[in-house]
């Protein structure tokens, strides 16, 4: 079913919306959740929570890209679960991602307002825009979809060491871009 049809089902409060979403995006959402949480049971529950979140959000939400919208929900729910259950255990997945993302942090203080968060998102967007398409995909495959480095290396046909070097360059490039924009974190 087309995304527009699925969204219409949500707006009509038709429970087939969840079945259709599960059918079309179940694997996609589970893949992201597994990448971020690494525990099948947690990933399944997160995906299940995602369907509930979608049901509660539409209406009033009407996503222009259902896939991207669902992916964001999975990322947010995965982060919440990680914060709740795994943060102190230093489980892999999000822990690794956050550790790597430290390389991107400009040296400064803290974010104090939602406005600054929006500025940060805009700066990340602008930085992504000036990357080559392949580098942009590479960055987002790792830091949005959480694809493990080994798997990403296979996808790109690079040695893991070379990929790690490339990812480091990308992270440092983002840090430089944020510093240039005067972004404080």
């Amino acid at each position: 079913m087309e995304d527009a049809g699925i969204i219409t089902l949500y707006w009509e409060r038709d429970e087939r919306a969840i079945e259709e979403t599960r059918e079309k995006y179940g694997g996609y959402c589970y893949g992201i959740a597994m990448n971020l949480l690494h525990i099948p049971e947690d990933a399944e529950e997160t995906v299940s929570d995602t369907w509930h979140a979608a049901w509660n959000a539409m209406p009033p939400e009407r996503p222009s890209s259902l896939r991207a919208w669902l992916g964001r929900v999975v990322r947010n729910l995965s982060l919440s679960r990680w914060n709740r259950e795994h943060r102190k255990k230093r489980d892999p997945g999000i822990t690794e991602l956050l550790s790597e993302l430290e390389d991107c942090l400009p040296s400064s203080v803290t974010v104090e307002s939602a406005m600054e968060e929006k500025e940060l998102a805009a700066a990340v967007d602008a930085w992504l825009r000036q990357l080559s398409r392949e580098d942009r995909r590479l960055f987002l495959r790792r830091y949005w979809y959480g694809v493990p480095l080994q798997e990403l290396a296979k996808e790109r046909g690079l040695s893991p060491a070379r990929l790690a070097q490339k990812m480091l360059r990308l992270r440092r490039s983002l840090r430089a871009a944020l510093e240039k924009e005067g972004i404080s974190l």
Binding site: R67, R72, E117, R136, W144, Y145, E155
Partner: peptide
């Protein structure tokens, strides 16, 4: 600080998310 950046990455444009959905 990294969580703030995680959130910012979550919010990137939908077209980039779509673009990166498939393996390279």
């Amino acid at each position: 600080r990294t969580l703030v950046l995680y959130d910012a990455i979550t919010a990137v444009r939908e077209e980039y998310i779509e673009e990166a959905a498939a393996p390279c």
